[in-house]
């Protein structure tokens, strides 16, 4: 029920911000469409803690700020290597272990690795991530596991 309510609020906010109309006719049409989407979502059974991770929401902003900092540093390194040429990259490929317990934690970890330029998650099987990196150092940093620890802290 909690998840249905948050989904309703999210969809209603999305509709309002995209349309910007406030007349009664438009508002009622919007409400009808939101309720219809809710009905479909219930029928295909996707309204749960995975599509609406509200239990994470109060911890996420801090993690996003940290991720933004990492993003900046990684971007600078990759752009530098683009302009310096082929001799300054050292592509590497390895498997690392994820310590998260839940699926959603693993997905957040894998997506955080992928969104950072310089590292891409190629495969995720069980608790093992196959990662391709542009620099050898990137893999060493990942293996040291600060991002892993932060995502693990997020899910508890």
């Amino acid at each position: 029920m909690r998840h249905t309510l948050t989904l309703f609020l999210t969809l209603a906010a999305f509709w309002m911000l995209n349309s910007g109309h406030t007349s009664v006719l438009m508002l009622s049409l919007g409400t009808i469409s939101v309720v219809f989407v809710l009905y479909i979502a219930h029928r295909i059974d996707v309204v749960d803690h995975e599509s609406q991770p509200i239990h994470l929401s109060y911890k996420l902003p801090g993690y996003f700020l940290w991720l933004l900092k990492e993003l900046l540093l990684a971007n600078i390194a990759v752009v530098k290597s683009i302009w310096l040429g082929k001799n300054f990259i050292s592509p590497a490929f390895t498997t690392i272990k994820a310590t998260q317990k839940t699926d959603i934690g693993k997905v957040i970890y894998a997506n955080s690795i992928t969104i950072t330029p310089g590292t891409v998650t190629v495969d995720l099987v069980g608790d093992r991530l196959t990662v391709h990196a542009l620099f050898q150092e990137n893999l060493d940093i990942l293996k040291a596991g600060e991002m892993d620890r932060r995502v693990s802290r997020l899910e508890n």
Binding site: I82, K86, I115
Partner: peptide, 22 residues
């Protein structure tokens, strides 16, 4: 420039990552 300069598919993907994020 990166998508043209890098040697193989996986490294090109990192170059695209730059344009997609920052």
């Amino acid at each position: 420039v990166g998508i043209l300069r890098f040697p193989d598919f996986y490294t090109r993907m990192h170059a695209v990552g730059v344009t997609d994020t920052l």
